[in-house]
Amino acid sequence: MKTHDSYWRLFSSIYKKDLTLAFRQRSEIINPVLFFIIVITLFPLGVGPEPNLLARMAPGIIWVAALLSTMLGLDKMFRDDYVDGTLEQMMLSPFPTSLTVLAKIAAHWTVTGLPLVLMTPMFALLLNLESEALTATLLTLLIGTPLLSLIGAIGAALTVGLQKGGVLLSLLVLPLYIPVLIFATSAIDAGAMSLDYSGQLAILGALLAGASVLAPFAVSSSLKVSVS
């Protein structure tokens, strides 16, 4: 009972610490959202303003923008803690590193993923998305963005010790994002045609369940490589 309690306390204190840090330097929260907005604004300017074309492309645009804006925060996920030595202390503690990692991933999602989900209804209007497609977009983003944080954390942990990890991080992580992108956009497509998209959501959910079990272990062993 005692250890269970302290596991939870570890999780919540790390989560709270990361959130507090993020709220102190607001740019960390605002920058990904701004980036998301700008990418979404660029697409209509690039491909032309026809409403039908935009509605057809909206799921892809929203999801590619979401992928890219979660990439922005990834590099910072472990970097600050690594630089000031906190990460090493966390790994030396008797608690499993994967739990620490999970808390940090949850905080990353709250800071970068959740705002995107909340902002999406507005972009759906900009991109002329139907209301059925909007529900699908919200659901896929809600399931998909934590998945992006989980997978991205592996790349972030592998590159945390490197001087110029940024470009390498996107090379490592973006190929792994492809299944999420495919299933999410096809769910939205199906939703736009008023078809049943529970299958795609179920697969995304399965991926999320699998990733939340496996990714913390991969992350903690890559952190061990980076920190040692």
């Binding site: 592996i154 592998l158 490592l172 190929p175 792994l176 299944p179 496996l214 991969a218 062993s221 890559s222 490589v225 980076s226």
Partner: peptide, 12 residues
């Protein structure tokens, strides 16, 4: 690090 990445990749 490359070993971990190779293993993550093969799951994917």
């Amino acid at each position: 690090a490359s070993c971990i990445l190779a293993m993550v990749g093969v799951v994917n």
